[in-house]
Design a binder for these strands. Sequence first.
RNA 1: CGGGGCGUGGCGCAGCCCGGUAGCGUACUCGCUUGGGGUGCGAGUGGUCGGCCGUUCAAAUCGGCUCGCCCCGACCA
Length: 531
Amino acid sequence: AGIYTYLPLGLRVIRKVEQIIREEMNRAGSQELLMPIASPAELWRETGRWNFYGKELIRFKDRHEREFCLGPTHEEVITDLFRREVRSYRQMPLNFYQIQTKFRDEIRPRFGLMRGREFIMKDAYSFDQDEASARLSYQKMYDAYHRIFTRCGLTFRAVEADTGLIGGSSSHEFMVLAETGENTIVYSDAGTYAANVEQAEVLPPTETDTEALRPLHTVQTPRCRTVEEVTRFLNVSPAHLVKTLLYSTGTDTVAVLIRGDHEANAVKIQRLLLATNLELASPTVVEQVTGAPVGFAGPVGLKHIRIIADHAVNALRNAVVGGNQNDTHYVDANWGRDFQVEQFADLRSACAGDPSPRKDGGTLKTTKGIEVGHVFMLGTKYSETMKAFFLDRHGKECLAVMGCYGIGVGRTAASAIEQNHDAKGIIWPFPIAPFHVHLLPLTQSAQTTQVATQLYNELGAAGLEVLWDDRDERAGVKFNDADLMGAPFQVVVGDKGLAEGVVEVKTRKDGVKLKLPPAQVAAHLIRIRAS
RNA sequence: CGGGGCGUGGCGCAGCCCGGUAGCGUACUCGCUUGGGGUGCGAGUGGUCGGCCGUUCAAAUCGGCUCGCCCCGACCA
């Protein structure tokens, strides 16, 4: 699963995406190089990622039992290169990129090229003297990415994102907007703010409940485990329930309180706890900690465990919480009185309807996206652990300030199909189409063969890539296959048309057909291409 | 890893429950036919039923083990 052979047409598309990336990276001042795929463990141990990267890192040993991995990304390798080769600020800023097969042993590969275990990636790395210069390098890449995805014919959006396993201070993801996307994006309907939902900041509520506190009491809630079951049974709104989620960090168990209608955000929780690992506690642990089966955990009387809560819980009065006893909940629970909270923080995911965190007066909306590119401000995370120094103009040793920038090449191609297709097949954007023109002689007659040959040569000479369907198939078969493969133009050469001295030029996107004398086809297509 | 499903000509599937030596569609080959949106008719080629072990006179079918693939989940208590 997640390992594929690229067939001829698909490979042509991949190569075109790569070429666009090369042109724009070169234009932005980045230089192409090629690093090894096999990478020695010692480099990864220096940064700690030999352990931190976990099972996604494919590891192996050579005949001498030395450990290696197949590169999932190349910060370690490029930083090693930098520290060996670069001594002076006069050699900076530097930016290198490569286009190479990457290996990540994904927990679940899916959707073909969208999430493979082996995939082609463009990765780039910048080295600057200081933060200000690094921000310029970052901006150059950000702008280059806009040009790349625009040229690939994609509708996309750059959003603020989490830095995950790569790390660093800030990052943007380039998201192709598509319903089938695995990521949820939130954006302000008033300003320019947009972010991945796992990153999007949520403002604390501005108003607090003013209800008078009622006395705490318990209620029986037989077989009501989920928020939906409990709130329906008690006839209260999910916004009046506080769910208690128990997380294991590997060393510790922590209770996280989230309002019933909100979603906990593991990335934010992990960040707050400074944990390297975070997963929901197993049912066994839940029973040990709460004394009740899963579904009845609550903060009241919960001992020997850290309790943190989302801001929204702070504003609640008289809430419903789990009873730490089978089939039991508390109603009218209040923090400070009935249970203590160590810290209130932003721990939930943003959702549609939340106010924009930029205070631009807007409200957040959500949409789905496919992550095709990601740019990171790394700061000195790697130069520090790997001692990548240079001498500045005062002769002082300084750490390089880094950035890194990735594009999923196959995923970009797949996204283009996602956004450009109809019931009959693919409609390739011209710049990445495997062929520009699909040439369809409808018969094997001497006349059509002669005109097709002439067109094939002329169009080729005009710089157009032509796929000639020379099969002895019926017209319908050729038409359907041409629509499926999705070249932007089809040129149909048939005996009927030739009797009138014309061939037919069809635009795949809108289905418009135009009759032209063969001699005018090349000029016509060149004109359309220019526009 | 948890849950579910599936491995049968190249591809898509039926047969399995109820054991008797493999079938349909498509693709492919040949002949005729047709010839501007997946022609029609006819004749053919091709499968040790994922693998191993077992039960049985007899296994695609029953039992055990194993390998692989697909889907959902792994973050809502």
